[in-house]
Design a protein around this nucleic acid. Structure first.
Length: 388
DNA sequence: AACAGTCTCAACCGCCTCGAG
DNA sequence: TCTCGAGGCGGTTGAGACTGT
């Protein structure tokens, strides 16, 4: 049995909402309250689907939604949180990748780690720390402003690492910390195509457009990511954390390759325990990748997980500490694992990467992504839809 | 002035989660 | 325990505004 589409019905209007429609929706919700979205259009006299009504209300009409320009402080928070979570993601992958030829269990490990990371990153998590901002607005602001600003600074917006071997830009060194990536206070909002150079106008030193310069930024980002395809592939196969964990505990998850195996936080000990360890493992894993949960920041700055981030909370101290924290963690990683992945080096052609070319593969995540994509069917049995 | 290219962001899409029955 | 649907989520689209030639 297939699910009915959310918005079926003739004569349903799409596209931009009119003032009249807004008034009807506001009036109805003021009178009857939120909820029961499916019935609202009919009762409010709107030719919209319930989902559209809910979105319009939660993102734009709700009285406590903050609209308009993002402050530099808000920008910093977004960048910091995105960087923090992005780093965790890279960290997991980095620790999962073997130095030598990939084995099936290694690939499983990578898939496991990616799968868990998929469950960790959410725009709504970031939006939660920006009072009155919606996840949709944060997401849009990231995609249209902050991501481009990072690229201008030669920072990979996915990994927050310096863009490798990019001699096309005039600026090659990343800023000392992420604070400097936020626009100066006098530049709170770029005006349309004026103060902010567009991607398509980036040029080489000789004035010729950078590679791909003729493409719109949308097309460029679309083109980019074998990582995205990899994640989609994983997401399609893994339906719950329990599957990940059960697969892990059956032996495909190698303790020696786990990021937390080398930490003295007891995670590795929990893996071998009985059923109860699943929840503890999950809780601890998710907590570790959430900078707002079990971070030392909590104890040092008394940020409680659920309540202390109110309207007047001063983030500056927190951000400073978070920046230091991430920086230190990065150093620790490099020492501990002795190799680094330049996930952003998209200029290298990787499709020809062979298993024998191990060291090159290690150095290039794109290569790994493509490799895993090419070999993913060895990991999952498409017939039984299970790990094999 | 006209046109093409680019940018922004509100809105949509499709999938997922979770709770009620 | 299972099914179903409301609500939630991130990714993507496309109309309209803007800029450059």
């Amino acid at each position: 049995m297939s699910r009915k589409p959310c918005c079926v019905g003739e004569g349903l209007k799409k596209g931009a909402w009119t003032t009249e429609e807004d008034k009807k929706l506001i009036s109805y919700i003021h009178e009857h309250g939120e909820g029961g979205w499916r019935d609202i259009p009919q009762k409010a006299g709107l030719k919209r689907c319930g989902k559209s009504c809910r979105l319009r209300w939660t993102n734009y009409l709700k009285p406590d939604v903050k609209r308009g320009e993002f402050s530099s402080e808000e920008e910093q928070i977004i960048i910091m949180l995105h960087a923090s979570r992005g780093n965790k993601y890279v960290y997991m992958l980095k620790c999962s990748l073997p130095r030598k030829a990939p084995q099936r269990n290694h690939i499983n490990t990578v898939f496991d780690m990616i799968s868990i990371s998929l469950l960790v990153f959410r725009w709504s998590d970031i939006a939660r720390h920006l009072p009155r901002r919606t996840d949709n607005e944060v997401k849009n602001y990231w995609n249209t402003h902050l991501k481009k600003r990072l690229i201008e600074q030669c920072i990979d917006p996915v990994t927050h690492k310096p863009l490798a071997s990019n001699s096309n830009h005039t600026v090659n060194t990343p800023p000392e910390n992420l604070h400097s990536l936020a626009a100066p206070s006098s530049d709170k909002q770029y005006s349309r195509s004026s103060s902010m150079p567009s991607l398509s106008r980036l040029t080489n030193k000789d004035g010729t457009p950078v590679q791909g310069g003729a493409l719109s930024h949308k097309k460029r980002f679309k083109k980019s990511s074998s990582t995205s395809r990899l994640l989609n592939k994983v997401a399609a196969k893994v339906t719950s954390v329990k599957e990940i964990l059960s697969a892990s505990m059956e032996g495909s998850l190698s303790a020696t390759t786990l990021p937390y195996a080398s930490h003295s936080n007891g995670f590795s000990e929990q893996i071998g325990n009985e059923e109860d360890s699943s929840n503890a493992f999950l809780t601890n894993t998710l907590a570790e990748f959430d900078p707002f949960s079990q971070s030392p920041l909590y104890s040092e700055h008394e940020i409680n997980a659920t309540s202390d981030l109110g309207m007047d909370y001063d983030f500056s101290h927190f951000l400073e500490k978070l920046g230091r924290d991430d920086h230190n963690e990065e150093n620790d990683m490099n020492v501990e694992y002795g190799h680094d992945l330049l996930m952003s080096d998209v200029s290298q052609e990787v499709s020809s990467t062979s298993v024998d070319d191990q060291d090159n593969m290690i150095e290039n995540f794109e290569g790994w992504s493509n490799y895993l994509l090419d070999h993913a069917d060895f990991v999952y049995d498409t017939e039984s839809d299970s790990l094999i």
